[in-house]
Amino acid sequence: MGEIIKVDHVSMNFRMNVNHTTSMKEWVIAKLKRKLQYQDFFALNDVSFSVQRGEIVGIIGTNGSGKSTLLKVISGIYKPSKGTAVTAGRVAPMLELGSGFDYELSGRENIFLNGAIMGYSEEFLHSKYDEIVEFSELGEFIEQPLKTYSSGMMMRLAFSVATLVDPEILIVDEILAVGDERFQKKSSERMMNLMSGGTTVLMVSHNISQIRAMCSRTIWLQHGQIRMDGDVDEVCDAYLQFMQTT
């Protein structure tokens, strides 16, 4: 066991430029006129928690409560404006499937490209390659350029790459349903397998029953702060009650 994610007093401040200067001229003029105004927006405000190895944590909250921002901070995409977020393992972010794909390249080349983006070595990807192709059920299409794929095929490939490389930390943002019904079943089985196999999972979902079914612990975020952190049923009940009253 042991801590695998430690989020320590994290604040994420988005400085919104009221003037919307994107050209140098506008910026210089605004600066000279001292009209360069900013509006601070705290997407996360002093959030602290830690996750043990193998835990499956659900994150819930209303729209704009900072869930996705939190996942991006933990993935290392955002650098928090205050505090630190430390992860002790390889993170596979499934924020948007297939974001590292290149449509000109073949499925095969994309498997290696996407794996490389996640920081895996060539040998490792070679050893996993057959398994990934098999799971994605793409067959001979794997040699075709990605631009010829249907969106379902693309999603299947992306899901296969993200989950078959045995990440230590899997970060999931509302993307458990991929492909047709059969593949959906297969992919949720795969997720279950990963979770029982010791992968630490952080997932964001609006589907409370899904959270109840999969997670052992839940964090409820509101206005960028932790409202509640604890047992899955307890937090979910409180959240549902809160949603009904407002």
Binding site: D102, A116, S121
Partner: peptide
């Protein structure tokens, strides 16, 4: 060391796509 394979992949990709 960790990302040298990514670098290689990106370089090869750019070169391949250029004349594809």
């Amino acid at each position: 060391k960790q990302y040298k394979y990514l670098l290689k992949t990106l370089v090869v990709r750019d070169f391949k796509i250029k004349y594809k």
